[in-house]
Design a binder for these strands. Structure first.
Lengths: 211, 211
DNA sequence: CCATCCTTGTTATATTTGTAACAAGGGATT
DNA sequence: AATCCCTTGTTACAAATATAACAAGGATGG
């Protein structure tokens, strides 16, 4: 089985977004060239990314938007819903419960946890905040597949361990720390500070980065 | 002037975080090996990343934590404060106004805008929500250097244009769209949906990604 | 039906990025 | 002071990634 690079996966997400946009605009087909322009990559890159998974286009004509969109959705597992548990209902956590980009793509935050007794039992955007004490059990009972971690650094690793104990196989980690997981669990880190720091670097050393 | 890769910049941020952590723990020095382990990279990678900017270690001994930390801060422009304007006080925007990881690193959100008359004038975490109508003027008056964009896709490009018109040279974009800026402006995109979609891909095609 | 113009999928090439190897610096120990 | 053990900085090498080139498929127009 061929390995797919992180970069390719990220680009697929972006192509997918472009396809949704073009579909809404009423377009029927799209060429690798246009798809490339919309995403600041080369046409060759687009074609090579797609060729990892099959041949979806028609020579001389381009790609059928609806068809390619459906294919990418299938490849990326976006043609279904995912049960997601949110851990840590702080500023970030609250924002994520109601994040359109999650919901519209089928990531359903149906379970939320916090350790603060003052928050437990409250309802945020239709989701009841549960007691963290029962995390493993609840996660298992609710058949949660993905865990979103937005707790402080100090408790991130232990929450991750408990999510894994509850059967979660994918974790989106917002805590700025390098968490450890068993070999069969996937982690993606989302550290917003890192991006703004990259901006700080670029502004400080404009000659060292390509505009 | 040598070009520094995106990956290197991201890793520097992470090394920096590790150094802060180790410093708080009371350590004096650290080896490339330890720094590597803490960040899931090789020791050679750490040394090469650092060597882009100078020779900060002592052979046989490792790196002085305080010294290296200070050097990375200087390199990345983290030894100062940055004036930041936030555009769009929705769920994400509200969370960012009070985001520790920004504040602790000197990114000061002192100005916030929204187009909703119902929000204008309100104070969130000590920041007054201003009328978007005066964005260019306010941004210029307040000497804002970085703009954070958390508005809907439909208005993202126009807000970016106006930030640039106000003199902003760095933009952190949360809108899931590929915005265009003049050559001398830097953009970093933060799309949380892309990361969870990568997770969806990994869970759907476990054989295609390295655990 | 032939010629022309597009656009894909794939292979070959170039570039970038990461890893390994090692000489040289430096402290500790006897 | 000589030896031993570490650890860096750098150079050489390997792997991964991106770009370019092109043959082949397919539409269109005369």
């Amino acid at each position: 089985m061929p390995r797919i690079s992180d970069s390719t996966i990220h680009r697929l997400s972006r192509y997918y977004r472009t396809l949704k946009y073009m579909h809404d605009k009423g377009s029927q087909t799209i060429s690798s060239n246009i798809l490339a322009q919309q995403n600041d990559v080369t046409a060759a890159q687009v074609r090579k990314d797609l060729s990892c998974f099959g041949a979806f286009g028609r020579r001389g004509l381009g790609y059928d938007i609806v068809d390619l969109k459906r294919n990418i959705a299938r490849i990326m597992g976006l043609d279904r819903t995912w049960k997601v548990a949110l851990c840590g209902v702080g500023n970030i956590g609250r924002a994520l419960i109601d994040y359109d980009q999650f919901r519209v793509q089928g990531f359903q935050i149906t379970v939320a946890f916090d350790s603060d007794p003052g928050k437990i039992g409250k309802v945020i955007h239709g989701v009841v905040i549960r007691n963290e004490a029962n995390l493993e059990r609840d996660v298992r009972d609710e058949k949660v597949e993905i865990g979103v971690v937005s707790v402080p650094v100090s408790s991130a690793q232990s929450i991750v361990d408990r999510l894994v104990a509850g059967g979660v196989r994918g974790i989106l980690n917002f805590a700025p720390i390098n968490i450890k997981v068993p070999k069969n669990v996937f982690v993606r880190n989302e550290n917003m500070a890192i991006e703004i720091e990259a901006l700080s670097f670029a502004l400080t050393n404009p000659k060292m980065v390509q505009y």
